[in-house]
Computed example of a mutant assay.
Amino acid sequence: MSKKEIDYLDIQKIMSMLPHRYPFLLVDRVEELVPGEHIKAFKNITMNEPFFQGHFPGLPVMPGVLIIEALAQAGGMIVLSIDGIDVDDKVFLFTGIDKVKFRRPVVPGDKLELNVTKIRSKMSIWKMKCVATVDGEIAAQGEVSAAIVDRESL
């Protein structure tokens, strides 16, 4: 993909970019993507999510760490969409999480909007500003650092 803005990616295209699969693929749709710069994506939250069995019985709340993971997966797509990066040979791994705040619970029926913007990158390390919202309200926000690495090195 080029630096050109992409308007929409369906689940098939998302799965061609990210290595994650059920039950850990946390991006359902991408509505805006500027490779190397910004993404606006969504995760639809349903009662069928496997984590609701234990978090919490009778009071389903999406774990905050999974909201951050959804943001990181979206952030990985920013990097993996850059021309010349072979998604079959590379993987995007956390190196740090900073300034994270959780502002509201995310529950079944919510549409989690994932907005991730590059702050900076140097060599293979990327730092991104992440904001997850539901109906315009901030659910979680923070900064994520990650590195793009060769799959063979793992």
Results as ranks from 00 to 15, higher is better:
21 R>S: 15
45 I>V: 15
14 I>Q: 10
38 H>A: 05
129 K>Q: 12
28 D>M: 04
97 I>Y: 07
67 I>A: 03
135 D>L: 05
39 I>L: 02
1 M>C: 08
118 K>R: 12
71 L>A: 10
133 T>A: 11
118 K>D: 00
60 P>R: 02
14 I>R: 11
139 A>G: 00
101 K>N: 13
56 F>I: 09
130 C>I: 13
70 A>V: 09
16 S>H: 12
15 M>T: 10
127 K>D: 13
143 E>I: 15
25 L>D: 11
47 M>R: 08
115 N>Y: 01
125 I>V: 15
44 N>C: 07
24 F>M: 14
5 E>H: 02
153 S>F: 13
36 G>N: 04
22 Y>G: 11
100 V>F: 10
109 G>H: 04
29 R>E: 11
85 I>V: 13
43 K>P: 06
14 I>P: 14
117 T>D: 13
65 V>Q: 11
80 L>Q: 04
35 P>E: 12
98 D>C: 05
39 I>A: 01
134 V>K: 05
43 K>A: 01
9 L>V: 13
146 A>P: 03
81 S>Q: 10
126 W>R: 02
87 V>Q: 09
3 K>L: 15
61 V>E: 05
47 M>E: 14
45 I>P: 06
61 V>Y: 05
74 A>S: 15
35 P>K: 10
93 L>N: 07
69 E>G: 10
67 I>C: 03
108 P>K: 07
61 V>D: 09
68 I>Y: 02
106 V>L: 03
154 L>D: 08
85 I>P: 03
151 R>C: 07
106 V>G: 04
24 F>T: 08
125 I>R: 10
84 G>P: 04
23 P>R: 06
5 E>K: 07
12 Q>K: 13
38 H>G: 00
81 S>M: 08
61 V>K: 06
